[in-house]
């Protein structure tokens, strides 16, 4: 039959692909044909997929950054501890040498009048401060490591928390010692940029998800 196909029920025009008549809904399917496995032609990648990949890559970079921040903080903390401890011990030795001819009671009275502490208390306080700085840096390294662990499940939330902490640490250090802001500023700007881009990507993904 070479002519136009029509619906056997209402005579409306149908095409060979139709299973039902578009006009009356009658079943016009031919005898079942075994399905052919035609390979799907690779079409262009949709824009949404490209966008999602770009977001995922930014988030992955931020995740790697978190572990890098942890390691850098750890190394910097150990290095700073060694330098500060040497400086404090040298200061203590120098002062001890200066005051070697004084008897301990006059020395303590002198220290107390100037600093409100005895010599032993002052030494303990200075050494304690060095240990505290070390502990703070170790604490920060552990925190960033924790954020990295969290980022394996939830990059967005971990990146937000890490950014808040990082900016806070920079601000406090900068307020106490402005020189610390300039040292390695490219690295600092880079860290913040990676975190901000990742947060932006994750945030956009969440908002796209919600609508």
């Amino acid at each position: 039959m070479g002519g136009e196909m029509v619906c056997p029920k209402c005579a409306a025009a149908i095409t060979p692909d139709d299973k039902f008549c578009a006009a009356c809904g009658a079943d016009v399917a031919p005898a079942p044909v075994p399905p052919q496995d035609a390979p799907a032609a690779p079409g262009p990648i949709p824009y949404s997929v490209i966008e999602a990949r770009a977001r995922a890559s930014k988030l992955a970079t931020a995740r790697k950054l978190l572990v890098a921040m942890s390691i850098i903080t750890l190394i910097a903390g150990v290095g700073m501890y060694l330098v500060q401890r040497r400086a404090v011990e040298k200061q203590i030795d120098d002062l001890e040498a200066q005051m070697s001819d004084m008897d301990p009671e006059t020395r303590d009275a002198d220290m107390k009048s100037r600093t409100g502490m005895t010599w032993e208390q002052a030494k303990a306080r200075d050494r304690g401060e060095v240990r505290l700085h070390f502990a703070i840096n170790i604490g920060l390294a552990v925190f960033y490591f924790g954020m990295w662990l969290w980022a394996r499940k939830n990059v967005l939330a971990a990146a937000i928390t890490a950014l808040l902490l990082y900016v806070t640490v920079l601000a406090v250090n900068g307020a106490l010692e402005p020189k610390t802001l300039i040292a390695g500023w490219q690295l600092k700007v880079g860290f913040i940029a990676i975190l901000v881009l990742a947060i932006d990507a994750g945030y956009k993904a969440r908002r796209a998800e919600a609508t």
């Binding site: 692909d17 299973k19 039902f20 609508t211």
Partner: peptide, 22 residues
């Protein structure tokens, strides 16, 4: 009036307003 593939009747749809963005 019907789908030529599955045979279901073509139903007019109420226009749905997109949800307001969060």
């Amino acid at each position: 009036a019907f789908c030529a593939r599955c045979g279901t009747r073509r139903q007019p749809v109420e226009p749905v307003a997109p949800p307001p963005p969060r």
